[in-house]
Simulated scan of single mutants.
Amino acid sequence: MRRTGTTRRGALTATGAIAMGAVLAGCGDGADESGGRKGSAPADARTASDSASAVRAETSLRKKAAGVSASLLGQYENVLAAHPATSAGLTPLRDAVRAHVQALAPGGGASLEFVRTRPAGSPPEAVKALAAGERRASAAHTAALLDAPPELARLLASVAAAASAHSYLLTELAKETKA
């Protein structure tokens, strides 16, 4: 009668294969990006200019993403001003969007300037328009992930996911909102 399942021999073989893979993945040819010259002045200058351009690119991405969220925050403010009856459902979402603007803004703070306009239509239509705005914001933040450095990409992914969740909640709220 043969035993089925994992044996000690199989487990040791698998562990050895994983360890060998890790060792081989860590091995390199020893050459670095500066053409084999460690600590050379041209390589250091190139690294400094690359770093400065990366900071400028991240700042630009942050400004753009914060602008998208600030525009959405303006929509929330407009709907809340025009339809105060929706405040119970919209206030927590608006506060989350305000936190997103502050987190995305370069330097951790942003001026919250937006245009106050009267949203068209009844409260359910205004809430549906907010849901559409959240979907656009989610798409914009998701598209920005391609060019973002890792830390900003994680933040953008989180904000995009929150915008998608807000969109769902707003769609459901629009169904429950009375005209």
Rank of each mutant, 00 (worst) to 15 (best):
V101Y: 05
K64E: 09
A65G: 04
L93E: 00
F114I: 06
A96Y: 00
E113W: 10
G107V: 12
R98L: 14
S60T: 09
S53V: 05
S69H: 04
F114C: 00
Y76E: 06
D95A: 14
A82C: 08
G109V: 10
L72R: 02
A85H: 00
E113Y: 14
A81F: 08
Q75A: 09
S111K: 15
L112E: 06
S69G: 01
V115N: 05
A66F: 11
E113G: 10
L80E: 14
E113R: 15
T117W: 07
E58Y: 11
R94Y: 02
L112R: 06
V101K: 10
E77N: 15
S69R: 13
H100I: 03
A54S: 15
P84D: 08
A54Q: 12
A81M: 08
Q102M: 05
F114D: 00
T86R: 07
L90P: 02
F114Y: 12
K63C: 07
A81G: 11
K64A: 12
A57E: 14
V115M: 11
A110G: 15
E58F: 10
G89H: 04
R118Q: 13
S60I: 02
E77A: 15
A82K: 12
L61G: 03
L90H: 02
V101P: 00
L72F: 07
A103C: 04
E58N: 13
P106S: 09
V97F: 03
N78H: 03
R94V: 01
A88E: 02
L61A: 07
A70V: 05
A57V: 09
L90K: 05
A82V: 13
H83Q: 14
S71G: 14
A105M: 10
A88M: 08
S60A: 14
A105Q: 02
E58S: 14
H83V: 11
A57N: 11
E77H: 15
A85F: 00
N78D: 15
G67H: 03
G109I: 04
G67I: 04
A103N: 07
A99Y: 02
A99N: 06
R94A: 07
P84A: 12
S87M: 04
R118A: 15
E58A: 13
A103W: 03
K63F: 09
T59Y: 09
G74I: 04
T59V: 11
K64F: 10
V55M: 12
Q75S: 09
E58K: 14
S87K: 09
V55W: 11
Y76N: 07
G109L: 06
G89R: 12
A54N: 11
E113F: 12
L90W: 01
S71I: 01
S53W: 13
G108I: 05
L61N: 03
S69I: 00
A57C: 03
V101G: 06
A81L: 07
V115L: 12
L80F: 14
T117G: 13
A103K: 10
A81Y: 06
A99Q: 11
V55D: 15
A99L: 08
E77L: 14
E77R: 15
L61Y: 05
V79Q: 02
A54R: 13
Y76K: 02
A81N: 10
R62I: 01
S69Y: 00
L80A: 15
Q102P: 01
